[in-house]
Computed example of a mutant assay.
Amino acid sequence: MMEHDPLGDILNSAPPAITAAESASLLHRHWGLTGQLDGLASERDLNWRVTTPEGLFVLKLANAAEDPEITRFQNLALQHIAQRDPGLPVPRVVPTQAGAGDVLLPTGSVVRLLTWLEGRPMHLAPRGPGLRRSMGATAARLTRALEGFSHPAADHVLQWDIKQASRLRLLLPAIAEPALRDLCARWLDLFDNRLAPLLQGLPWQVVHADLNPHNVLTDSVDHARIAGVLDFGDMVFTPRICDLAVAASYLVDQDNALESLDEIASAWADVLPLLPAERDVLPGLTAIRMVTTIALASHRAQLYPGNAPYILRNLPSARAGLLALPQPDEAL
């Protein structure tokens, strides 16, 4: 780990080293289920798709470096969403045979079981106005459903959180392309000098914070309809506009960047009205999420070359989107 690395232990720790057989044993012991386990890609955790006679599930083993309360924070948030907006397509927590929401292992990993959501990963769906509007509306519903939810772990520090962008500077040397590295540095200058001072005056709440195309499912027939939202592992208390910026950063049309950004924002505003100040900072925060994706992916791919294809999966679109948006000196 580099000195003073802002990623901390979580993003610099390898996923749990637990075999499929060991995971199957945990599944049977605590949930009374048996079935086939197939590995799922994950940045820092160990996830299994579980096929059983009772149905499909996801067995999740959290990174041992993560505070168990963060996993419980996620479970409680899913329960809160289910109560506030039962129609939102999010996983449901499956309790253990003892009625608990999770199991803490001696290794420090927390194990839990969630329901499986069917759908086509959004990164495989054709992009267009319909998908952007659907994503904007779904993201707003999700943020609205999380209104009023609080938990002590919501204040944890995670580098993916847009408000932490200033700490990305130490990771910029990992960006191989000099021009892109310079552009990212200029955006961070804008964040420090113009955007960050405005955040405190905006509405804050717990948000999903990672609506990337690998965490969103679309309908297998109607590719413009959102069928599922996955992976609540990056939830954090932050300005709510950051959640829209995250979602938008992956759907910006490279040929019509600002117009496509407005499509997403307008669909969001139909569900959850935006303040003028939130609209003003949205383009800049969208760019900052792209910078975050580029910097973190570049750095972590160096740390874990064996997992580089997964880690770098969103970097090309982030690069293209950043180049399509106005330059930093034109953003505000």
Rank of each mutant, 00 (worst) to 15 (best):
P328V: 09
G128V: 07
S260H: 00
F232A: 07
I10L: 14
A82I: 04
W160H: 13
L258R: 05
L168T: 10
G228S: 01
R181S: 08
A174M: 00
R240A: 00
L146F: 05
R181I: 15
L258Q: 09
L170H: 14
A20D: 11
L88S: 11
A324E: 08
D234E: 03
L171K: 04
T138N: 09
M235Q: 12
L325F: 00
F237N: 13
L199Q: 11
L312H: 11
H208A: 06
P106Y: 07
A176D: 14
G87L: 07
G32S: 13
L146D: 09
S249L: 00
T293E: 03
E3V: 15
G101Q: 14
L315A: 13
L282T: 13
M1T: 15
W160M: 08
A265Q: 02
V58A: 08
V291H: 01
D85I: 11
M290C: 09
A139S: 15
W204K: 10
L180G: 04
A227L: 07
E177K: 08
N314K: 07
I70G: 03
L315T: 15
D45T: 11
V252G: 10
E263N: 00
F73E: 06
H208Q: 14
D253C: 04
S42L: 05
P91Q: 07
P326M: 09
P276R: 04
I18S: 10
Y310I: 12
R92G: 12
A297P: 02
A62L: 01
S150I: 06
A227T: 13
T52F: 01
A196W: 02
T143N: 07
A41V: 06
P309E: 11
D210R: 05
D219Y: 02
L158G: 07
G101N: 14
P309K: 15
Q164T: 09
R44E: 04
T138W: 01
G228N: 00
Q302A: 12
H299Y: 15
H223Y: 03
F73S: 12
Q200G: 12
I311L: 14
D231S: 06
L275E: 14
L188P: 12
S220V: 15
P326A: 05
N215R: 08
L230R: 11
L114I: 10
R194L: 03
A154G: 15
S150P: 13
L199S: 01
P283H: 08
Q36D: 02
H123A: 06
V110C: 00
D45E: 03
H28G: 13
I70N: 02
R144V: 14
D262V: 10
V252Y: 10
A65S: 12
V58N: 06
E118D: 14
D222E: 13
L142C: 13
D219E: 05
A139T: 15
D182W: 01
R300Y: 05
Q97G: 15
L172P: 11
G233T: 03
T51S: 05
P276Q: 04
G128A: 06
D161H: 07
C242Q: 13
M290N: 08
F237M: 02
L251P: 11
W187E: 00
A245G: 08
P283L: 09
Q79P: 10
L27A: 11
A100H: 15
P178S: 08
H208R: 06
L251E: 12
R127C: 00
P203V: 05
T19S: 15
V103N: 03
W187D: 00
T19L: 04
